[in-house]
């Protein structure tokens, strides 16, 4: 494995370490955990006993490393409001959020990329102009407004789609999915469009401008001068060169899709982590907040790492160290 990926891996671990530190500080210093866990009528002795049993009297570094150790096993204790283990709660909620985010990201890529390519190849076509105006809407309307508009049209007025919830879900082990059922799929349509629309338009605009840029380059002119077919030029030579920035943005956007799912989940009462997190904020449910923070950070780190590896696959110039090795 090339050195730069190992370097990235180390950097990711450092990032996670600092996020863990923030989560830990929040855990221990935002309010008193014991205070949150017990009722008003608990005696002072009982509180001290609980404090001792939770290890809150240990020196801070010891507590911190215990926190990290637990975090690595994804154990964040008991939720204050739900009186259940955070791990269990997240297991319940994670599939909903990931499914929604994944479908939204896929939607934005599968629709945004071809639209962008088309608009880049035919910049003066009327359809390209329609795409561009449409993308303006996607970029400028806030997510919740799009959600509410969709609900108003398709749920309230037309009654075609459910306005809230996930519909019927199937359980595969602890994972739950709405994809195999009709009602689950129906329930997924509006939230994923709402969540993915911004990304879709972003990807479309990006691909379009990259495509326009690449088509002006000398190697495209030279490819034309060699009589290559339009298909080979557009999809073989041009598209691949637009991919590096597209991968970057898509990667970053998947991270923010997961993070922005909070709003969409609220609008559609989608039983995911975002909703859980919002409720946790209301109730100062620190374990959930800490866990959410760690999880989102973890997703970002994993996505960034994937993006780096993809760069490496797409762009040979990054394989420079290998190229040097077999002599040039």
């Amino acid at each position: 494995m090339p050195a730069f990926i190992i370097r990235r891996l180390l950097q990711s671990m450092i990032v996670m370490f600092f996020v863990a530190m923030v989560a830990f500080l929040m855990f221990n210093y935002v309010g008193d955990p014991v205070h949150q866990m017990v009722g008003i009528d608990t005696s002072f002795e009982d509180r001290e006993a609980l404090r001792e049993s939770l290890g809150l009297n240990d020196p801070v570094p010891v507590q911190f490393f215990r926190f990290i150790g637990n975090a690595a096993k994804f154990e964040f204790g008991i939720s204050y409001q739900h009186k259940r283990s955070v791990t269990g709660l997240f297991k319940e909620r994670l599939p909903a959020t990931l499914e929604l985010s994944f479908v939204a990201a896929l939607l934005s890529l599968v629709i945004g990329l071809p639209m962008g390519v088309y608009a880049g190849l035919k910049p003066d076509g009327w359809l390209s102009k329609v795409f561009l105006s449409f993308s303006l809407i996607g970029v400028s309307l806030p997510t919740f407004l799009i959600g509410i508009l969709l609900i108003f049209i398709f749920a309230v007025t037309l009654g075609w789609l459910p306005s809230y919830g996930r519909g019927e879900v199937m359980h595969i082990g602890w994972w739950s999915t709405g994809l195999p059922t009709i009602s689950g799929l129906k329930a997924l349509i509006m939230p994923s469009i709402t969540l993915g629309l911004f990304q879709l338009t972003l990807i479309m605009r990006l691909v379009r401008s990259e495509m326009l840029e690449v088509l002006r380059t000398d190697y495209i002119k030279f490819a034309r001068a060699r009589g290559l077919s339009n298909r080979a030029i557009y999809f073989g030579h041009a598209l691949k060169n637009t991919l590096v920035p597209v991968i970057t943005i898509t990667g970053l956007q998947i991270g923010s899709i997961i993070a922005f799912a909070i709003i969409t989940e609220t609008v559609f009462q989608w039983p995911g982590m975002g909703l859980l997190f919002l409720q946790a904020i209301h109730n100062v449910d620190i374990p959930i907040m800490a866990a959410y923070l760690m999880l989102v950070a973890f997703f970002f780190v994993v996505i960034n790492l994937t993006v780096d590896i993809l760069y490496y696959v797409v762009d040979p110039r990054l394989r420079l160290d290998l190229g040097k090795a077999n002599g040039s």
């Binding site: 000398d218 001068a225 762009d315 110039r317």
Partner: peptide, 22 residues
């Protein structure tokens, strides 16, 4: 397109940018 490359070829000014880097 069938004439380009096959019957008439072209060489541009800048060799650094005439080849697809990927």
């Amino acid at each position: 397109r069938k004439i380009r490359g096959k019957k008439i070829g072209m060489i541009f000014q800048d060799p650094l940018t005439s080849l697809n880097p990927l």
